[in-house]
């Protein structure tokens, strides 16, 4: 488990404030559990990478030499072409997830596609169709 310096300081401060009572320990347990759960959900070290697995890319191919921040759609398109080109690949699907009746092709990639966690179907927040999102 990687606990950042800031988080450690926070825990220390809470322990100091709450003194030597059971309350502080309960709180510490809660914090540890929270940290554990956020680590496993993706803010901690990366466990999976679809582009690494399927396209044999390295971290720096996408994140360049910057901090490992979420990618913008423009960065995705630097390899994948244009939104229209992406839509072309799925034009026979009905409904076509890359050509929404509401938004056209203009949706950010990461609304559905997640590189390091399970992808989701953005349309499913209002619609009920099945869609396997890579």
């Amino acid at each position: 488990m990687h606990v950042g310096r800031k988080a450690m300081k926070g825990i220390y401060r809470i322990l100091r404030c709450s003194g030597n009572c059971g309350w502080g320990i309960t709180l510490l347990t809660a914090i540890c559990l929270t940290l554990l759960s956020t680590t496993s959900s993706g803010t901690g070290p990366v466990k999976t990478s679809k582009h690494k697995k399927y396209a044999e890319l390295t971290c720096n191919d996408c994140h360049l030499k910057t901090k490992p921040e979420p990618l913008t759609t423009e960065q995705c398109l630097s390899c994948h072409g244009s939104l229209e080109k992406v839509a072309e690949a799925t034009k026979d699907l009905d409904p076509d997830p890359h050509n929404s009746p509401h938004y056209g092709p203009e949706l950010d990639c990461d609304l559905c596609h997640h590189e390091h966690s399970v992808s989701e179907n953005f349309c499913a927040q209002c619609h009920e169709w099945e869609l396997t999102v890579p």
């Binding site: 509401h102 938004y103 949706l107 950010d108 609304l111 209002c126």
Partner: peptide
């Protein structure tokens, strides 16, 4: 939201 149009677009 991450998409424009709010409720109007749906």
């Amino acid at each position: 939201m991450r998409v424009p149009g709010g409720n109007s677009i749906i």
